[in-house]
Design a binder for these strands. Structure first.
Length: 710
DNA sequence: GACCTGCTGCGGTCTG
């Protein structure tokens, strides 16, 4: 039977009405599989290849919507994505007379109430909204979700390897627990490519036996051009901006400059150039600190401007699948931190099938150029960095203990432990550990014991009853920026924020005229010029494989035809610098430059291992400085350094004690974990050891390391 | 030099 014939008649009519000539490959395959089995699937194919329909066409054909309850639950990491998908799914469902309901913090209360009265059809929701329902209205969870047949998870890669992902995994397990039957899961992604990631995906959804990957590997031609313009951290070189302007003035373009301040700089300066030469005025900035309504306007403009060109300078806010229509070109300024990110960004251009993707990569310094090249080469090899999975997510466990206790009016220790026993998110945490953590939560009054049963304690109430409870991540305080009642965006408090200072925000220039510390508001008026705003970033870690590839680029002789002349010159210059080292095995060899009483150790490894190396050097009294996350400047004799690092007595270092002391003395270290601070100290130490540092990777790295001296 | 993500319930006011 053809895939088309397998679908139900209303869905076939939808396809005919849409005048689709054929089904896309991913749709063909998904229909065949989903219609005939109940296994979990992950559909992998590039952006705009019809993944959403690949999941929904068969699911809607198969599911019996006559039964009571929500039958299909669609989960998305972003509200904006839910709103986009709602329109598409609703169109489809019009053929079936099946209700579709949006359920997130900004969705209509009336629609939600209507669904409670008559639970049916499809629901689109965020993980945090599921959490909120579990905590506040556990009876609604049963009422709505005990008849679920399918769960669709969009942009599933964005959950892998993060606390938010573990949280979602726990929620899925809790949903399955209250469900009458076993529901099937379909994950969607454009950014998964190797076997390691397949395993993690399968683990995430269940087991490798009951999860299958369906993948469309059709390559998409990409025209990549690398350009090099030396610049400073303060400002982008004018030549780069001029070149960028000329290249993009007659197209629809997304520009990714990596940092919010720089996003503003690019938007403002391109607009200035355009103004001067009478070009179009559609230059925008899009990032998390631009006011939400302004951002929505920018998205709307992009989606609906078929004739007008535009340039949106943005951060990762436009990396995921929000529908912004067709983009001709993608520009990346300086290297991405990950290959995954590069894949998502490249995928945003040339969405139409017949069009190639156009990618421009600008580098403003040598190291960034080399990292950019490394990412690009790995991308072409279809390599992607491994996901670092949190095997023992003690902090998420704290959150879920509070959530479960709150959702019950009293629960015994045995019942509570049973809740976690079958929960795959915590399968590597022993029951005795969970018990110890519960006991600690009681000691700090987060839980209270009434007779045989646990309830939320006095301190716990303070957290559980705030809206901040539902998420696994925390956000810093921002000041709202406005001008005469018009919302513009928000900025963190920094020395730069004071009266009469000029700043960029939302692609315009402003003068600060008032800062109100009480109401956390900044009043501004339009100005002629300004400076890019400072944000206090928390950084992103770069993987070992990218750094190793950088070294490979430096020791190879390959000429890159996609690189401009100045770029190739810089590569040649750096290669010449490194030619004094006899590097034959980039997987083990690392350059060690020995000069008058100073060493330069080029570690070429992940941010986490660099952080760990730096920590170890501190413990061993090796005076050093880590520069650009690439090299260590060391005040130490060369023979001593090599033997010290090769012969570390890990036992004597007493890591557990050092980490516990660190957690106690510097609580700020745990800032990366919103719920970790409520754990007993030695568990906090475990989090530091496995999440902030990477001792396992570091030991392995040092064991293989061969320092190659000049 | 450094990204992003989400949010209840209740009481008040406004609108049809």
């Amino acid at each position: 039977m053809t895939a088309y014939d397998m679908l139900s008649e209303p869905i076939r009519k939808y396809i005919r009405d849409k005048k689709w000539e054929s089904l896309r490959p991913i749709q063909e395959a998904a229909i065949q599989k989903i219609m005939t089995t109940d296994t979990h699937y992950v559909l992998i194919s590039r952006t705009a290849s019809g993944k959403t329909e690949a999941a929904f066409l068969p699911i809607l054909s198969k599911v019996n919507f006559k039964e009571q309850g929500v039958k299909v639950l669609y989960i998305s990491p972003l509200i904006a994505l839910i709103n986009d998908q709602f329109t598409r799914v609703e169109q489809l469902c019009a053929y079936l007379d099946v209700p579709v309901t949006k359920w997130h913090g900004e969705a209509s209360k009336g629609q939600k109430d209507r669904l409670i009265k008559d639970p049916a059809g499809i629901m689109l929701i965020t993980p945090e909204s599921i959490e909120a329902m579990f905590v506040n209205k556990p009876y609604n969870v049963r009422h709505l979700f005990s008849n679920l047949e399918y769960v669709v998870i969009d942009e599933i890669h964005s959950f892998l390897g993060s606390d938010r992902g573990v949280h979602l995994q726990s929620l899925l397990n809790r949903l399955q627990k209250i469900n009458h039957k076993k529901f099937s899961i379909v994950g969607l992604s454009a950014t998964v490519s190797d076997a390691n990631q397949y395993m993690e995906l399968k683990d995430f959804l269940g087991t490798s036996e009951n999860t299958r990957i369906i993948r469309d590997n059709t390559p998409k031609p990409i025209n990549a051009v690398f350009k090099y313009f030396p610049g400073t951290v303060e400002e982008l070189p004018l030549d780069l901006l001029k070149d960028l302007y000329v290249r993009t003035r007659e197209s629809k373009v997304l520009i990714f400059p990596n940092a919010r301040g720089r996003v503003e700089e690019v938007a403002v300066k391109l607009k200035q150039i355009s103004d001067k030469v009478g070009g179009h005025k559609n230059y925008f900035a899009h990032h998390s600190s631009v006011d939400k309504e302004v951002r929505e306007y920018v998205e709307f403009f992009a989606k609906n401007s078929t004739l007008q060109n535009f340039a949106i300078s943005c951060t990762s806010t436009l990396e995921l699948g929000i529908d912004i229509g067709n983009v001709d070109e993608v520009v990346q300024i300086d290297a991405t931190h990950s290959i995954a990110s590069l894949i998502q960004r490249v995928g945003r251009s040339g969405r139409r099938e017949d069009k190639a993707s156009n990618l421009f990569l600008y580098a403003t310094n040598g190291w960034s150029l080399i990292q950019s090249l490394a990412c690009w080469l790995l991308y072409k090899e279809q390599y992607i960095e491994p996901i670092s999975v949190n095997k023992k997510p003690y902090d998420v466990l704290v959150h879920q203990i509070l959530s479960i206790v709150k959702s019950r009016s009293g629960i015994t220790l045995r019942q509570l432990l049973e809740e976690f026993a079958g929960n795959a998110a915590f399968k590597d945490i022993a029951a005795t550990e969970t018990e110890e953590i519960i006991e600690h939560l009681k000691e700090i009054d987060f839980l209270e014991k009434l007779g045989n049963e646990y309830i939320i304690g006095i301190e716990g109430e303070k957290l559980v009853n705030t809206k901040d409870f539902y998420s696994l991540f925390s956000t810093p305080t921002f000041f709202k920026v406005g001008s005469q009642g018009v919302k513009i965006g928000e900025l963190p408090l920094s020395p730069q924020i004071r009266e009469n200072e000029n700043i960029y925000l939302s692609a315009r220039t402003w003068k600060i005229i008032d800062v109100d510390y009480q109401t956390k508001k900044i009043e501004v008026i339009p100005a002629k010029d300004g400076k890019k705003p400072t944000f206090l970033g928390d950084g992103t870690d770069t993987a070992h494989q990218i750094r190793q590839k950088m070294l490979e680029v430096l020791v190879s002789k390959e000429e890159f035809d996609f690189l401009d002349t100045t770029g190739q010159e810089i590569v040649n210059m750096l290669r010449k610098e490194f030619s004094i080292f006899d590097i034959n095995h980039p997987e083990t060899d690392r350059p060690l430059l020995v000069s008058n009483e100073k060493l330069t150790f080029y570690s070429f490894t992940s941010s986490k291992i660099n952080r760990t190396l730096s920590f170890i050097m501190n413990v061993l009294g090796v005076d050093h400085q880590l520069d650009k996350d690439i090299l260590f400047e060391i005040e130490y004799s060369q023979s001593d350094f090599v033997s010290t690092m090769k012969n570390i007595d890990w036992e004597a270092m007493n890591l557990d004690k050092v980490m516990t002391d660190m957690a106690e003395d510097i609580p700020k270290m745990l800032d990366f974990s919103k719920w970790g601070i409520y754990l007993p100290l030695h568990y906090q130490a475990e989090l530091l050891k496995s999440r902030y540092f990477d001792f396992e990777g570091c030991r392995d790295y040092l064991q293989r390391l061969r320092c190659i001296e000049n």
